[in-house]
Amino acid sequence: PKPAPVVTVKAVPTFTWTTLPATTTLTSVKISVGIRSKSQITATHVYVNGQMYRGIKAVTNDGSDMRIEQTVPLVEGSNIIKVSATNADGTATSERTVVRQTTKPVTATQGKRIALVIGNSAYPAQRLANPQNDAADMAAKLKTLGFEVILLQNGTKRQMDDAINQLGQRAQGYDAAMFYYAGHGIQYKGANYLIPINANMHSASDVEYECTDLGRVLDKLDESGCKMKIIALDACRNNPFERSWYRGSADRGLSAVNAPVGTFISYATSPGSVAADGQNRNSPYTTALLQTLDTPGLSIETVFKRVAASVFTATNRQQTPWYSSSLFQGDFIFNNK
Rank of each mutant, 00 (worst) to 15 (best):
K2M: 08
V9Y: 06
F15I: 02
L26D: 10
T27P: 04
T27S: 11
S28W: 06
S28L: 03
V29F: 05
V33L: 03
G34K: 04
S37C: 09
S37H: 05
Q40I: 13
Q40A: 15
A43L: 12
A43Y: 11
Y47H: 12
V48I: 06
N49D: 13
R54T: 14
G55F: 06
T60R: 13
D62E: 13
S64V: 13
L74T: 03
V75Y: 10
S78R: 14
S78Q: 14
I80C: 09
I81V: 05
K82Y: 11
A85G: 01
A85K: 03
A88T: 06
G90W: 00
T91E: 12
T91Q: 07
T91A: 05
Q110H: 01
K112P: 02
L116C: 03
V117A: 02
I118R: 05
G119Q: 02
A122P: 01
Y123G: 01
Y123I: 00
Y123S: 01
R127Y: 08
A129K: 10
P131W: 03
Q132W: 04
M138S: 01
A140P: 02
L142C: 01
G155C: 02
Q159M: 04
A163Y: 04
Q166W: 06
A171Y: 02
D175E: 11
K189M: 14
A191K: 12
N192D: 07
N192E: 05
L194W: 00
I195R: 01
N200R: 08
S205G: 08
Y209L: 11
Y209I: 11
L221R: 01
E223D: 14
E223P: 10
S224G: 07
G225Y: 08
K229P: 05
A232I: 14
A232S: 13
A232Q: 09
A232R: 10
D234E: 09
C236Y: 03
N239M: 05
N239E: 09
E242C: 08
S244P: 05
G248P: 02
S249L: 12
S249Y: 11
D251R: 05
G253A: 02
A256S: 14
A259R: 06
V261T: 15
S273L: 15
V274K: 12
D277N: 08
Q279F: 14
N280E: 15
N282R: 12
S283F: 07
P284D: 07
Q291I: 07
T292D: 05
T295S: 09
T295E: 11
P296F: 08
G297E: 00
G297W: 02
I300P: 04
E301L: 14
K305F: 12
R306M: 13
A308W: 10
A309E: 15
S310I: 08
V311T: 06
W322I: 10
Y323K: 11
S325H: 10
S325P: 06
S326E: 08
F332A: 01
I333M: 01
I333Q: 00
